[in-house]
Amino acid sequence: MKQGIYSIQKNRLIARDTWEMRLKGDTSALCRAGQFVNVKVGNAYLRRPLSPAAWDNESMTLIYKVVGRGTDWLAHCQTGDSLNLLTGLGNGFDTDVSGDRPVLIGGGAGLPPLYRLAEELLSKGKKPRLIMGFGSAAEIYYLKEFEALLPVTITCMDGSAGICGPVTGAKLQAGDDYLYACGPPPMLKALCAYPLKGQMSLEERMGCGFGACMGCTVRTANGAKRVCKEGPVFLKEELLW
């Protein structure tokens, strides 16, 4: 984990309530897709955990949905403003254990880390595909960016784009051999019925984000685990619902 000050290079609305923010600063603590950063916001006590969509040696891209006061404050930040971040938190996805044709499934605000994950899987010569689920067409973001990397299937709860209904409406295909998922708990729970091994990133209200407060502990088949430290990515098989 590292603490650093990051300069906002870009902060723009890319879909309904959904913002893309590019930050310049030290990204050396980020090692794997699915890790997260904890962002200090100006109008609330606790930091806000966000999993970056992408990063290089000197900048990272956060995509966040405005769901409350903290994210609303972030949406009002301007280019040139500075943010205090803790970076390199959590374990991230393990890309070595999947087969050659993993299926990535992301719901709404859970999609961002799957962008970086897709890049990492491609760099290892794997051929991932993506199912992205939204509430409605107005919430769709990063479609072009994802389509530039891998085949994409869209689902929308209200039927306004793609397959109507939840992500489980997009059936598995014959070649799918591993599952990576990030999204709301009901989605992950439903995906646990799939006959594939896989990894899932959990979301939970956190205190510190680095393992000190036990605020985000969940029961797993392998005992009590902190979502922020031993997670947020867990083996599908070890999750208890």
Binding site: Y45, L46, E204, R205, G207, G215, C216, T217, R219
Partner: peptide, 30 residues
Amino acid sequence: KGTTLHPRFGNSTPRIAESTGGLLNAVGLQ
């Protein structure tokens, strides 16, 4: 960390709620 005779999982989540100038916790002595 508060230690008890026997291991404790503590409470179910959410264990953390924010409040102006601080937070509420209900970890439950994990």
